[in-house]
Design a binder for these strands. Structure first.
Lengths: 344, 344
DNA sequence: TTTTAGCACTCAATGAAGGAGAGTGCTAAT
DNA sequence: ATTAGCACTCTCCTTCATTGAGTGCTAAAA
């Protein structure tokens, strides 16, 4: 089951895929014979191609056209033949430079990184910001006009949530300061799930005269963390239009549709192997009709115990080697840099 | 110069524009005669159309096609003929419901509103979040792991900025609390521009032993407000694909390109009349080749002294009456609801 | 004077017909 | 096992005629 093709077949498959990725046109035996340095005549290659087609690695759009890689062909290629392409020095610099300069604001870094990836690959770039066991770091109530307060929730991941809540008129900045202090003292270091009724009860008794404020504050805090507020970045919607597969407006439409659904994207990105490496999914492997012509490459990054994902979404005819190389490098840089700041 | 067309011409122009907006095809004299209840024969209408064309209100794609509104035609229509279309009850509910439920988080409300507009109009919806004289409300330094602190800056507009900064190891949560207190006491209620060197100096002397921390904190604070961090929401990229003008991929591409440029969008939206009403710009009125086939309808909303803009971007063949009605309603609802919370 | 009917004319869109060209599969020769 | 040769297939492009919607103009009707 390992490698079912002999070396020559592999070479032909690789040559064909690489040519097709570059040219976006069915590849004929003549082309392979000429452009790629394996000294074989078109006829020989034709024979091999017929075999490869029979085994399901190639498709033929119509009888007198060249061959096109099938999903299975791509799969074989990325699993057994392809060598990830190390980004060139310039590209590496571009990536690390952006990560380092902005490295003190997590959402911005993710966004920047995504944007760079989109630019470099000319596919759609996606990123989900860190999520996972959300641990409180700090809670702050701030007076915000008469009868209003702002609740700030800072997580260990570096994310900040905020909301304005109503409070009774009589409460002063000083009161809010006090309330914040008590809440922090009690909740520090806990995760969402750790907040037991008992702890809340404790806070309530300690601050019984502020029950009113607490109700609103806790409601928001719960909400902020329950709704796994993952930030999804998407970029490169323009550059993907330069891919010939999206000359077809219908296809483009399904893609756009997908890209507007935050939750779906999030699921899609995080449903990969989840491991730290790079994961590739091709066409029908998604088991979804609407994206059967797209491929997704994801790379996890790790900030302390919290993980996020960088990804590239494009046509199945994707420059896998390049994309994998770039994503891997970006994810690693991201992990390293961010770990210095937010890591444990 | 006021109204240069007689009533019949106006009626014909309106009928033609409305038909064209609906059908997206050149409109012939026969169609107008039949579908719109002005009892005139095709021949009469032909004569009037020839006049209208001569005056520049209509174009003819080719000699044997119907007529198409010119930019000038649209302009005349929106200025003199069109009645904004009041949203139906259901639509109003949809809008206000979304604004009310989420009204406690400004960025979310803007986003939600934009998304509803996109859905209802099937054009691209844009929104810039409030900006203007940014007034501090609160500053908070929070301990964030060894050698790190998080700076939180809360603005009167309800926006929150945050960043992690390095601090000397020895500084405790308690110190940070103190620093926050002093900064707040000194800066409360000031705008970015108000921060004079003298005030900073005062804080520095008062907190001289924390100079190190202050440097980083102030740097961020300055930055957070100097870079007019306007949030630009965009939605409806999918639904705009259903517009026949974007079957043409080139056009789509320029649109996408525009939509990815935050700063440009921001300028575009805020460069309208700026007044609170609804503003319409059509095609070449932008003086930009790349958007000469697009129209932009903007509606300002007002939260206290701070203003933002809702907008719809679509082909010049846009349902102006509907869009204007929806935007106006949404902007008004938004102003009202948000004013209750953030208003002065 | 204004409106309408009639008619010849124009031009994009559609579809059929006929190469041209790229690529194949098969067979026979190397 | 490989390759040259050749007939065959199928898309793409061009050409050409047809169709039909819509016009402008003229002359009749209101």
């Amino acid at each position: 089951m390992r490698s079912m093709l002999n070396e020559r077949q592999e070479r032909i498959l690789a040559a064909l895929i690489e040519d097709f990725i570059e040219m976006a046109e069915p590849v004929g035996s003549r082309t392979i014979s000429r452009k790629h340095g394996l000294g074989l005549s078109p006829a020989t290659i034709r024979n091999e191609m017929a075999d490869l087609e029979e085994m399901g690695y190639l498709d033929q759009p119509h009888a007198s056209a060249g061959r096109v890689p099938s999903e299975r062909g791509y799969r074989y290629y990325v699993d057994n033949v392809m060598k990830p392409e190390e980004p060139c020095g310039e590209e590496k610099e571009l990536i690390t430079a952006h990560i380092k300069t902005k490295a003190r604001e997590i959402a911005t870094v993710i966004k920047q990184t995504g944007s760079i990836i989109a630019q470099l690959t000319r596919y759609a770039a996606l990123a989900v910001s860190p999520c996972g066991k959300s641990v409180y770091r700090h809670i702050q109530l701030v007076h915000f006009g008469p009868g209003q307060a702002m609740v700030l929730v800072v997580l260990a991941s570096g994310e900040v949530f905020h909301r304005v809540i109503p409070i009774p008129e009589g409460i002063t900045s000083y009161d809010l300061e006090g309330i914040s202090g008590v809440i922090n003292a009690n909740l520090k270091g806990l995760t969402v799930k750790d907040i037991k009724f008992t702890i809340l009860r404790e806070i309530y008794t300690e601050l019984s005269r502020y029950r009113n404020v607490l109700d609103h504050a806790f409601e928001f805090i719960q909400e902020a963390l329950a709704t796994k507020e993952e930030y999804v970045y998407r970029g490169g919607l323009q550059s993907i239009l330069s891919q010939p597969e999206f000359k077809n407006v219908e296809r483009l439409r399904t893609l756009m549709g997908l890209l507007e659904q935050d939750e779906f994207l999030c699921d899609l990105l995080t449903s990969g192997t989840g491991r730290k490496g790079v994961d590739i999914r091709i066409g029908r492997e998604f088991n979804r009709e609407d994206i059967r012509e797209l491929s997704l490459v994801t790379a996890g990054y790790q900030i302390g115990k919290i993980g996020g994902v960088l990804a590239v979404l494009g046509p199945t005819r994707m420059r896998y080697a390049r994309v994998v190389g770039l994503l891997r490098y970006a994810a690693e840089s991201l992990s390293e840099e961010m770990d210095k700041i937010f890591g444990r």
